[in-house]
Simulated assay, not measured.
Amino acid sequence: MKVLHIIPSISPKLGGPTQVVLNLVMALREEGIDVEIATTNDDGDRLLDVPLWQRVEYQGLPVWFFPRFAQIKDFLPSFSFTRWLWRNIRNYDILDNHYLFSYLPSCAAIIAQWQRVPYTTRTMGQLAPWALAQSKLRKQIYTYLIERRNLDQAAAIHCTSIGEKEDVINFGLKPPKIVLPLGVIPPQIIPNAQQELRNKYGLSPNIPIILFLSRLHYKKRPDLLIESLTELSKHHQDFYLLMAGSGEEKYVQSLLNLVTSLHLEDKVVFVGFVSGYAKDLLLQGADLFVLPTYSENFGIALAEAMVSGLPIITTSGAQIADEITFAEAGLIIDGDINSLAQAIADLLNNPQLRLKMGENGRKYALEKYSWTTIAKQLARAYQGIIEQ
C-alpha cells in the first residue's frame, strides 16, 4: 500500500496542523505503510529553504515540495503540483487530503476523481458553524463550485471527534465518516521543571503560572484571556501568564498594547514560538492551561497539555470539550470575560483540584491519544477503502 498525504503547508509557524501531519505520517511509516507528503514551500511571509520538485527527506520523512504562487498566499496555489500529480497519481493507492478551501487538496480531489484513485478528506474543523461564518460568501461560492462535489466523492471523511462528525453530518455529506482522534507524543519528564521555568523567565516562586500555548490569532481569543485577568487583579489574585506562540505582527502588537493599557506588564510574558525542550518546559512547569478558542476541530495543544498533566480551561468551541469533561480533566466555559475569570480563579485557588484534573487528563491522553493506535486504525481504514 502506498499513500500520499496532501496538505497546503507544513510550515512550523502553523503549529498544530504541521505537527499532526508529520506525526501521523511517521506513525504510519512505523506500521510499515509506504507514505509520502506533498505540500508547498510556504512559510508564512517567507518560503521554506527546501529543494523543489523532488522527493526529499524532511524531518526524517519523505516529502515533495512545490513552489507556491506567491501572489495568492491564502489559497496557496501551486501549478507545478498540478502537473506533477496528474502524471504521478497512479503511483499511489490512496490519497489523504488535509484541509478544505485550499488549492492543493481541492486540486488533488479533482485529479483523483478523473483518474479514479480513492481519497479521504480531513476537514480540520472547517465545517464547524464558526469556521463557515468566516469569509462566508467566498466559502459558499467555493462549496457550490468545487468543495461539495469533492467531499461527496471522497471514499471517507476523517473526523477527529464526535463533534466534528456532527458538523460533517449537518453539512449534508454522504461518504462514510471515520472518527479517529489525533495523537500526542508523551514528553520526556523534566525534573524540577517548575523551578527551571521560573528561573528562565525571572518569575517569583509560589505564584501560579497560567499558560497559553497556541497560534496568536483572533480565533484562539488570547485577547479575551488577557482581558479576563483584570478581573483577577481586582481581587488581588496573584498569577503570571506566559503567552507562547507566534502570529501576524500587527495582531501580536495589538496584544502587547492591550497588556500595556490594562497595566499587566509585570504579570504577562510573551515568550514567542517554542518547540522541543522549551515547549516541554512550559507544559511541565506551568500550573494551568487556558485556550478560550472560538472553534477548534480537535485542539492538539489541548491534548499536549493533557498528556503533560496540566488542567485545562477551554470553551465548548473545542470539539474535544466533551472528552475533557468526561475525563474530569478541566473546566468548559462560556466564551465571556466573567466565566473565564471565575474558572481561572477557581483553579488557582484550589491546588488539589488542579493536580487531580491534571492527572486525570494525563491518564486519558496516554490511553486515547496514542499515535500508534491511531495509525493502526487508519491503516485498516485505508486497506478497506482500497479493497472496495
Score class of each variant (00 low, 15 high):
Val117Trp: 03
Leu137Met: 15
Glu196Met: 15
Leu61His: 04
Leu281Tyr: 02
Ile333Met: 02
Val168Gln: 02
Ile337Val: 13
Ile146His: 07
Leu24Val: 12
Met357Gly: 03
Val50Phe: 11
Leu283Pro: 14
Glu265Cys: 07
Ser275Tyr: 08
Asp43Asn: 15
Thr293Ala: 05
Ile37Leu: 11
Ala381His: 10
Leu331Ser: 08
Gly299Ile: 01
Thr121Trp: 04
Leu95Tyr: 08
Leu48Asp: 03
Gly60Ser: 07
Gln19Gly: 14
Gln115Asp: 06
Arg215Phe: 00
Leu137Gln: 12
Glu249Cys: 08
Leu347Gly: 11
Asp280Gln: 15
Arg198Gly: 10
Ala154Gly: 06
Met243Asn: 05
Thr160Leu: 06
Ile178Asp: 02
Thr160Pro: 00
Ala27Thr: 05
Leu291Glu: 03
Ile72Gln: 05
Val63Met: 02
Pro8Leu: 07
Trp53Cys: 04
Val179Thr: 15
Pro311Glu: 03
Glu36Asp: 10
Thr18Leu: 13
Leu28Ile: 03
Gln113Ile: 12
Ile157Pro: 00
Gln342Trp: 08
Ala244Tyr: 01
Arg138Tyr: 02
Val271Arg: 04
Lys13Trp: 03
Ile7Met: 09
Phe298Arg: 13
Ala318His: 07
Ala244Trp: 03
Leu232Gly: 13
Asp74Glu: 14
Arg380Met: 11
Thr260Gly: 02
Val179Trp: 01
Lys356His: 04
Phe75His: 13
Glu323Met: 11
Arg29Met: 08
Lys250Leu: 08
Leu48Trp: 03
Leu281Gly: 12
Val290Ala: 02
Leu262Lys: 15
Gly125Lys: 12
Ser135Phe: 08
Glu30Phe: 01
Gln54Val: 02
Ala133Arg: 14
Gln140Cys: 04
Tyr218Thr: 11
His236Ile: 04
Phe212Lys: 14
Val290Arg: 04
Lys356Asp: 07
Leu291Tyr: 02
Asn150Ala: 09
Leu291His: 06
Arg221Gln: 15
Ile332Trp: 05
Leu353His: 11
Leu310Asp: 04
Ala244Leu: 03
Gln134Val: 13
Ala327Val: 11
Leu302Met: 09
Val274Cys: 14
Asp238Gln: 15
Leu262Gly: 07
Ile146Lys: 06
Asp238Leu: 09
Leu76Asn: 14
Gln253Gly: 00
Arg122Ser: 10
Ser161Glu: 01
Ala109Trp: 00
Val274Arg: 15
Lys2Pro: 03
Ser275Val: 08
Gly163Val: 12
Asn350His: 03
Gly183Arg: 12
His217Ala: 11
Leu340Tyr: 02
Gln237His: 13
Ile72Asp: 03
Ile300Asp: 05
Pro118Glu: 02
Glu296Gln: 09
Pro77Trp: 04
Lys368Val: 06
Val274Trp: 01
Ile374Gln: 06
Met357Leu: 09
Asp280Asn: 15
Gly317Lys: 13
Gly16Trp: 01
Asp152Ser: 07
Val290Glu: 01
Trp130Phe: 07
Ala343Ile: 03
Val269Met: 04
Ala278Cys: 05
Ala131Met: 07
Leu229Tyr: 14
Ser204Gly: 08
Ile157Gln: 06
Asp167Ile: 01
His235Cys: 12
Leu264Glu: 07
Leu355Pro: 00
Tyr144Asn: 08
Ala128Ile: 10
Arg138His: 03
Ala301Asn: 10
Pro105Thr: 08
Ser339Lys: 13
Gly15Met: 08
Thr82His: 07
Phe66Lys: 09
Leu224Gln: 12
Phe69Ala: 05
Asn349Val: 05
Arg198Met: 07
Ile324Gly: 02
